[in-house]
Design a binder for these strands. Structure first.
Lengths: 129, 129
DNA sequence: CAGGGTGTATTAATCGATTAATACATATTT
DNA sequence: AAATATGTATTAATCGATTAATACACCCTG
């Protein structure tokens, strides 16, 4: 459990994204238990309400479900889980294309640049500033 | 002169980006005059101060220069101008790769998706929501 | 039963960036 | 000279999201 926070996005959004990435890569499996709000808050040094906010978003998205005061669990709805990966990928692709299209870059050049960057090992975290 | 504003980024940032795109694609040439702050504000239906804010950013970035109260002009520094295109492209690539890497997608799949999306004519403006 | 752990809801504070209002000096034009 | 357009600076208002404080109901366990 380790989230690299940046300063531009809200914390709860970054927490949600972190869980989505875990789901997308299969690190979190259907039915798996996740930490309690307060436990997560402790681990990440964030306010418990912020953790709750993140979990609430995930609950409403159907990614987790919660019964009474038992540990929340990743949903067993495989369709929902599969869609997470697609959503993350499509979101990244869409915003990339929206950003690059107005610049009139050839497809070949784009592909080359992405390949180069993608193959680099990522020493630096946090992406583009 | 037509900027499709979105609701998430500050207006002045979007204005700056619009000019950078114009520079990157050669629509704005070295030495070319650009509208006055107030004129731009009128065209885009924004506050003159917002236009000024955008121009100030560009001035500080060396993209435009202003003498007294004459129309501001695109810089003639070709190096600066060329860097704009590179900066826009690198920014898009970097943030895309940062977003996609944690999801463990194969390079082939990524490239395929980008090609598909990029070749689509863009009926919808505004990118991914 | 008491205590500590849960999830949840309501409300408030914070906090900063963004936008706008206003004024000023200059220059050009009529 | 007056009027109008320019760029610029200073200051203030707005505005909203995000975060935090607090309280409550529940349940299990010792």
């Amino acid at each position: 459990m380790n989230v690299n926070f940046n300063n531009r996005d809200p914390v709860y959004v970054q927490v949600v994204r972190h869980f989505k990435e875990q789901i997308a890569t299969g690190m979190l499996e259907p039915g798996q238990e996740i930490p309690s709000r307060r436990e997560l808050a402790n681990k990440l040094k964030i306010n418990p309400n912020t953790a709750q906010r993140a979990y609430k978003e995930m609950e409403e998205a159907g990614l987790i479900h919660t019964e009474r005061n038992l540990p929340s669990k990743i949903t067993r709805n495989e369709k929902t889980l599969g869609a997470v990966r697609e959503e993350l990928i499509a979101g990244a692709v869409d915003s990339f294309v929206a950003a690059i299209r107005p610049i009139n870059v050839s497809l070949d050049e784009i592909v080359g640049l992405i390949q180069d960057k993608y193959e680099m090992e990522s020493k630096e975290e946090g992406g583009y500033e």
